[in-house]
Write a protein that binds this DNA or RNA. Structure first.
Lengths: 337, 337
DNA sequence: CTGTTAGCGCATTCAC
DNA sequence: GTGAATGCGCTAACAG
């Protein structure tokens, strides 16, 4: 037999007050005498009472739930983002409702389901909201923030990395170290900030006079793909002396392919740059030069954007592009000798 | 101005029926004429109506939320478990409410907060519920399943790996390949199934006559720790010829430490076995022999346990210990020559 | 500062 | 098979 659930009525009876008083005792900043508040709280704790958040949400027409739509689980260190996001949100008194994106076409449905739970806000990791869905969210006054995507033109708030700035840094780095033929390897072609990176590299090298991008391949994601790809690149007439990969694991595959399969020396014959600064990048076997991902700032910024819009729903959409730093290790040539 | 929210009343009016009919139209298996159901559904879709799950939860006194308490984010591939768990649960019509364990002492609080949301069930990843909390859950008839922990004596359901079986396999494998002095490296000392593994290795080697465990260290977790640790071990009088690490990254650190810092050959001088079969284990630079983690079966089993208890709350607690397989690569000696 | 009243949106009795 | 009434547990608006 399930123990009878205790409600505010029970607490009110025990404390000898009205249910409203109980409610007030649990509402921060409500006008209630310290004495009665104390009495209510004591009664509550002896009964083991906890307010029913569902009932509260019903008449407040809003919950303390934040919907978190997660994609790109395997890529990158986005799980860190997920963890940090959940931790920060909880610290601010919100709970997270997690949904995985299984089918990109169904993002509208996913959002709809979260809406049924009266979520107070929405975080979308590694995915862009379709324009119609984004518009619906703004209409409902639902604060929304994209993480790791920019979502240009959808009107969503976004937190991502400054791809153009990053691309310029990488290009300068490679040019300065006398590279001449660069290959660009990425997983998918349609990720906005990666586009920015790659375009910046292309433009900056093109104007250098000494260096150019000789290949820009997509569909290359992960160790195996990287390892296969570098062999393919070296079977062409024109071979690269520098490779930038959109993901560390790809870069490590490139390194192993170059060394093990092609017998090349890194960085003498080929410089390799990764992205993400995942754990293996720092390990002794590869010492990969890569791009750090500012997890903490990304999350901090995303949470900040959300909270400020929760307070003032009329704020304009905001896109924050964070700076990243190159972590220079041994997989790239020295500056000069 | 926020658009007026549409409720079952609006739909009822448009369809020319009562709110009860609307409710029935959205309740699977309710007694409603197909014709009226169709009319209601049409009205609902023209209005863009979706039932308010919060209101439903209130009078059903239960939501479709499953609380997911997550720990051990960084270790292992438990994020895969998280992803799969969320995907499977969603497939069965449940939503997941995610909470991170920041402070192990506060697990009771975390559970309490989830309870406020009337969660229908609880999943706890990489953590054990304190006995009092576990008892409270059974009292409330809240199905609970531990993942990656056994939680002996707490009465919770659990899905984990069969540590004793695994330990025996590892011991047999090492003995068969003529290892004599084994070192055991793990992160924390208090994880039940890792205890089982280590104990089994100790016992089995002890009775072999040819092989023994010469070190069992805890606090060794991750690449750096593993790399440091192997040097320390080789500064002792008695050095190991085989190492088992509770985590792949530790094992890779051991390999790099042995090769780079100590100039040893693997597997000639030292065999290394990891655990988890994380991506880097299969890469060319290490080719680590390791233990696969049956993510899919773990999740499948956990979800099954949950769903069956959601149907019949009176089922007895169940513990499922899954078998794991050794993935043999090049970091361990050949059988014989 | 406090109690009373009236819903939040829905699912469930019960009559019909 | 359907509609009218009732209440889930709580907060908000109102008097006092």
């Amino acid at each position: 037999m399930a123990t009878k659930r205790i409600t505010s009525i029970d607490v009110a009876n025990l404390a000898g007050v009205s249910v409203a008083a109980v409610s007030r005792a649990f509402t921060p900043g409500a006008s209630i005498a310290p004495a009665t508040k104390k009495r209510v709280l004591e009664a509550a704790s002896t009964l083991g009472y906890q307010p029913n958040v569902i009932a509260r949400s019903l008449n407040k027409r809003s919950s303390q739930l934040v919907g978190l739509l997660m994609s790109g689980w395997n890529n990158f260190g986005y799980v860190d983002v997920l963890r940090l996001l959940s931790e920060r949100l909880e610290a601010h008194g919100y709970e997270v409702m997690l949904k995985s994106v299984l089918d990109r076409e169904k993002i509208g449905e996913y959002v709809g389901q979260m809406l049924q739970y009266q979520v107070a806000a929405l975080v979308v990791v590694s995915e862009v909201l379709p324009a119609a869905v984004a518009a619906d969210c703004t209409l409902r006054g639902l604060p929304t923030v994209l993480v790791n995507r920019i979502g240009r033109g959808t009107g969503s708030c976004a937190v991502s990395v400054d791809g153009t700035n990053l691309g310029n840094s990488i290009a300068d780095f490679l040019i300065e170290r006398r590279h001449r033929r660069i290959a660009l390897l990425r997983g998918r072609a349609d990720i906005d900030y990666v586009d920015d990176v790659m375009n910046a590299i292309k433009e900056r090298t093109a104007t250098s006079g000494s260096c150019e991008v000789i290949a820009d391949l997509d569909g290359v994601l992960g160790y195996e793909a990287g390892r296969r790809c570098i062999s393919e690149l070296f079977s062409r007439a024109e071979t690269p002396d520098g490779v930038f990969c959109s993901y560390d694991h790809t870069a490590i595959g490139v390194m192993d392919g170059a060394r093990i399969d092609l017998g090349l020396s890194i960085p003498e014959d080929l410089s390799v740059i990764g992205n993400g600064d995942r754990a293996p990048a720092s390990w002794g076997a590869h010492e990969l030069t890569t791009v750090g991902y500012p997890r903490d700032e990304v999350v901090e910024k995303a949470v900040h954007i959300l909270l400020s819009r929760l307070e003032d729903p009329d704020l304009e959409p905001e896109t924050a592009l964070l700076k990243t730093d190159l972590v220079i290790r041994a997989s790239t040539r020295e500056k000069s000798v």
